[in-house]
């Protein structure tokens, strides 16, 4: 689109924002209702986390964080994310390349399958791994023979987390790659670039922001997953408690300050995720203008 047409389009939208719209008092009323609703449902709980975390002072806050069990929960959470996220990153790229660059029978079915983990309740997501690898599970004889434990062990937590966070990278990449089309890649091929060259020199730079956001989202979910992990974990303190499970334990012991202190770490992660998303969207809107 030429700049002229773009600015004409902008002018058109601006018109709608001005005169052929609701009167300003009505607008202010609607805006107020929306903002009050957002505050009550979203903002107040977020504030609550930090307020309660620091309620008894900074010392108590840091003491709660440096507790042995908290530290082991942090370690386990990082360990889980360090495996689940790279796996789903590779899967996401592979699936997006397949779906956005080729047409083949079953493509739509595949796209739906990638969304499956989102449609399944986290409790059920955890349950299926118990059914497979648990005491009376289908594959229990095999893993017992191999001498490994999956359920009530970190391995199960990693599996459940990988399942739950599987769609995130792919779902970010597919729409972006579909919209960009394959023209640039075809151009690179006609100029003599090999497949890998094309991917690393052309495709990757074009999708890097969406990829980054997908990874951040995937990571946030991997570190924060509660339901699925809760089923397979067994809640063994110091061994199989991730951060969200540790929060539950602390909360149920009425150790509210510690629970919120640990929560504040995850809330911070959430805020970073939101900022990252805003940055990515800003990058794309800049790139398209």
């Amino acid at each position: 689109m030429t700049t002229m047409a773009a600015s004409a389009d902008l002018a058109r939208r601006a018109t709608v924002n001005n005169y052929s719209n609701e009167s300003r008092p009505v607008q202010i009323l609607l805006i107020s209702v929306a903002l009050i609703f957002l505050s009550l449902v979203l903002l107040v709980p977020l504030f609550c986390v930090f307020t309660y975390a620091f309620e008894k002072g900074i010392d108590v806050y840091f003491r709660a964080l440096s507790d042995t069990y908290t530290l082991s929960a942090i370690r386990l959470t990082l360990f889980t994310a360090a495996i689940a996220v790279p796996l789903n990153l590779i899967f996401g790229i592979s699936a997006a390349w397949l779906i956005a660059r080729f047409h083949f029978p079953g493509r739509q079915v595949l796209l739906t399958m990638i969304d499956l983990p989102l449609a399944v309740s986290p409790v059920i997501a955890g349950m299926i791994f118990v059914l497979l690898y648990g005491q009376r599970g289908l594959l229990h004889p095999i893993i017992e023979a191999l001498g490994i434990q999956i359920i009530f062990a970190p391995a199960g937590i990693v599996l459940a987390t990988t399942f739950v966070t599987l769609p995130f990278v792919a779902r970010e990449l597919v729409p972006v790659m579909l919209e960009q089309g394959s023209a640039e890649e075809e151009a690179a091929l006609t100029m003599g670039a090999s497949g890998w060259h094309t991917f690393f020199l052309i495709t990757l730079p074009n999708i890097k922001w969406a990829l980054l956001y997908g990874v951040i989202l995937c990571n946030a979910r991997a570190m924060g997953e509660f339901g699925a992990v809760s089923v397979v974990s067994g809640h063994i303190r110091g061994l199989t408690n991730t951060l969200p499970l540790h929060i539950e334990v602390l909360y149920n012991e009425y150790n509210f300050t510690a629970a919120f202190a640990v929560s504040s770490l995850l809330a911070l992660l959430a805020i970073v995720t939101l900022v990252a998303k805003a940055v990515v969207e800003w990058k794309y809107s800049k790139g398209n203008s």
Partner: peptide, 24 residues
């Protein structure tokens, strides 16, 4: 900011949301 905040439930772990909603 309001726009960015909308995604909070996607990003905030459900356990954290649970305990803070309960407390509030």
């Amino acid at each position: 900011m309001a726009d960015a905040l909308i995604d909070l439930p996607f990003a905030l772990p459900t356990a954290v949301a649970g305990i803070s909603l309960t407390t509030v």
